[in-house]
C-alpha cells in the first residue's frame, strides 16, 4: 500500500521533483528530548489528581454554588428588590385569602349562632306562652294569646293549647282573643277543623256570632252542618239564630 502510494506520487513528478522527494526522505528528525516524557507523566499525574479531587468535591461545589446564590451582589439590587416585592405580594395575597376565609367562616358561624339563638328564643316564648295560658289571671292569659302572633312556627302543641283555651276558658274576652289568634293561623288544617268543632261547644252568644263571622271569613263550608245542629239547640239566642241562618245562606 505504501509502496503504491509512493509510486503514485512519483508518477506525477519530473526528475528534479523525484530527487527532491528522495532528499526529503533523508532529512533526519531529531528525537525529542527525554524531558518530554517526564513532563508528560507529570502532567498526566496532576490531571488525574485534579479529576479525582473534582469528583470528591461535587458536594462542596454545590455548596459553594448555593452560597454564591445567597451572597449579596450589589449588581443584582434590582433583582433583589423584585424578588422581595413579589414575595411580599405573594404573602399578602395568600394571607388575605386566609383572612377572608377565616372571616367568612366566622360569619357563617355567627349566622348559625344567631339562628340557634333565635330558635332558642322561639322555644322560650312558646314555653312561656303555654305556661301563661294556665295562669289564673285573665290578663296574663290574654297576654299569652297575643304572644302567639309573635311566634314564627306554631307547632301542634301551641295549637292544641289555643284550641283548649278557645273551648274551655272561663273568660269570654280571652276566648274572643284566642279566636282572633286562631283565625291568623287558619292555613293550618288542624286549626280549621278545631274551629268547626268549636261551634257546638260555645255557649256564649257573643262567641257564637264571632265564630259565625270567622266561618264566613274563612269560607269554611264544612261548618254548615254544625250550624244546622246549633240551630236545633234549645234556648238559642234569637239574634244568634238570625245570624246563623244568614251565615248558612252565605256559605251554602
Amino acid at each position: 500500500m505504501e509502496q503504491d502510494n509512493k509510486d503514485n506520487i512519483n508518477a506525477h513528478f519530473d526528475d528534479d521533483e523525484k530527487q527532491l522527494w528522495e532528499a526529503l526522505g533523508k532529512i533526519v528528525t531529531p528525537p525529542p528530548s527525554t524531558e518530554v516524557k517526564t513532563r508528560f507523566y507529570a502532567m498526566l499525574d496532576t490531571y488525574i489528581n485534579e479529576v479525582e479531587s473534582q469528583k470528591t468535591t461535587v458536594f462542596e461545589q454545590s455548596l459553594h454554588y448555593l452560597k454564591s446564590i445567597f451572597t449579596y451582589k450589589p449588581a443584582y439590587n434590582w433583582a433583589y428588590a423584585m424578588v422581595l416585592i413579589s414575595i411580599g405580594s405573594l404573602i399578602g395575597y395568600f394571607s388575605g385569602n386566609m383572612i377572608g376565609k377565616f372571616s367568612n367562616n366566622q360569619a357563617i358561624n355567627s349566622q348559625a349562632d344567631v339562628k340557634k339563638l333565635a330558635s332558642e328564643v322561639q322555644e322560650m316564648k312558646q314555653i312561656m306562652m303555654l305556661s301563661m295560658l294556665e295562669n289564673p289571671m285573665a290578663t296574663e292569659r290574654l297576654k299569652a294569646v297575643s304572644y302567639t302572633q309573635e311566634l314564627n312556627n306554631v307547632d301542634d302543641q301551641v295549637i292544641d293549647a289555643l284550641l283548649t283555651t278557645l273551648n274551655f276558658d272561663q273568660n269570654e274576652n280571652v276566648r274572643l282573643v284566642t279566636l282572633e289568634a286562631l283565625i291568623q293561623l287558619a292555613n293550618n288544617p288542624k286549626v280549621r277543623e278545631g274551629l268547626v268543632q268549636s261551634l257546638l261547644k260555645q255557649e256564649s252568644p257573643l262567641m257564637q256570632v264571632a265564630l259565625a263571622d270567622a266561618m264566613v271569613k274563612l269560607q269554611e263550608k264544612r261548618s254548615v252542618k254544625q250550624f244546622k245542629k246549633l240551630l236545633q239547640k234549645e234556648n238559642l239566642n234569637e239574634a244568634v239564630k238570625g245570624k246563623i241562618e244568614k251565615t248558612i245562606k252565605v256559605l251554602s
Binding site: T29, P30, P32, F40, M43
Partner: peptide
C-alpha cells in the same frame, strides 16, 4: 505517538523546543 507527533510538529514549525511544548499541549 509522541515521537510521531513531535516529528509532525517539528517539521511544521522547524523548532524542537517549541515542538516539545506543543506535544505536551496536544496530549493535554
Amino acid at each position: 505517538y509522541h515521537r510521531v507527533l513531535f516529528a509532525f510538529l517539528y517539521h511544521s514549525t522547524g523548532q524542537a523546543a517549541q515542538s516539545e511544548d506543543l506535544v505536551q499541549t496536544v496530549f493535554y
